[in-house]
Design a binder for these strands. Structure first.
Lengths: 201, 201
DNA sequence: ACATTGACATACGCAGCGTATGTTAATTGA
DNA sequence: TCAATTAACATACGCTGCGTATGTCAATGT
């Protein structure tokens, strides 16, 4: 019974370590997370950790990869389910704001990741998100829906504004009210991209 | 000779420690900066450091305060020297991008600061910059130059886009070309705020 | 002049990361 | 089927580096 191939055991070990690390990094943060406590919580020792991930940073990379993959799936689902390109783009921005509000994503991907690993422009992380948004904007520009603008530049500006807005909301005393204000201002800025602005704020 | 009052000696000690820390944090980063090396470079020991700043984080706070003060002065100079409110606002945004390109500011204020101290919405840092930009936008809205939008929300979105753009530029293989693209896209977004867009890209 | 405060140095303990070494179980080859 | 080898993990160690406790000496107050 329990005819488990070795590869599955290894995958499970890795998954448990990543899961424990994800929880620790997401709550107390990367710097405060102890490798001893982390591995113990996963029912393992630091030996397993260093065997699989090399060092603490390697573990962080693995965690970020996992979170980023989930983010990409969620974003794709949003943009694919939209009626037209423009609303799809807006929905994707809104979805990104909501994701950036989640403490785990905010802490691990948006703060500790860049601080520990260096800025994300090099590592694969977030490039998936950027690429997705860049493609959307490129299509919108080609279709003549928005003003001709460099797609990647626009995508990066939008993502920057989005992340900032999310952190602002997350730390506000009244997140609901601040969220409304941020979304309203955000829509104004996005309308600025349209060739025929709705001006329907 | 050298009739130095005690207060001046203390101020000089603090200044030397902050200066050494600023250099270390700005080059190798907060996590990799050793307090021993740092204080030794300043001709002192860790005793002085812990006496004045409490702990490593306290030193980081002091460094950030200093850098932030300089940033605020530079931004105010830019906005005060502009012909009209709108160009003043644009100049300020451009100045902020340029500042965010400086490695010291990018690393200490924009990356390590938030990661180590938590998000900046609570500490005084950057609030000066935010306040300055918020005031500008508020005046522009009151004067009917831009669409009615919550000033703080707009300021935060603009700053977010700005910081992101700066990091993009800083890590590009061709910073000049990327900078042009970013500025162009940025102006498009800002024009979206205007009631009578120039559309002169 | 003497007491006191405070600026700074010295010395110590301890946590935590990384590595070197050991142990056990699964896979390979004949 | 049974070595032999490889690889997954545990154990043990050293070292760096932060924070604190203690000591010293100069400057200020009376």
């Amino acid at each position: 019974m329990a005819r488990k191939p070795r590869a599955d055991m290894i995958a499970e070990t890795r998954a448990r370590l990543i899961s424990a690390a994800r929880h620790a990094f997401g709550t107390v943060g990367y710097a405060e997370a102890s490798m001893d406590e982390l591995t113990h919580a996963a029912g393992l020792t630091r030996g397993a950790l260093y065997h699989h991930f090399g060092d603490k940073k390697g573990l962080l990379v693995a965690v970020i990869d996992q979170v980023d993959a989930e983010m990409t799936v969620r974003l794709r689902a949003v943009s694919h389910g939209a009626a037209d390109a423009w609303t799809g783009f807006r929905d994707e921005c809104a979805a990104y704001i909501e994701m950036a509000l989640e403490p785990e994503i905010q802490r691990i991907v948006l703060r500790d990741g860049p601080a520990v690993l260096g800025d994300p422009w090099n590592w694969p992380i977030q490039n998936a998100c950027i690429r997705s948004m860049t493609d959307d904007i490129g299509r919108l520009a080609k279709a003549g829906i928005i003003v001709p603008v460099d797609p990647e530049a626009a995508a990066r500006l939008v993502m920057g504004a989005t992340q900032h807005a999310a952190q602002w909301i997350a730390h506000a005393s009244d997140p609901q009210a601040v969220s409304r204000k941020a979304i309203a201002a955000f829509n104004v800025m996005l309308d600025g991209l349209l060739l025929q602005p709705t001006q329907a704020h």
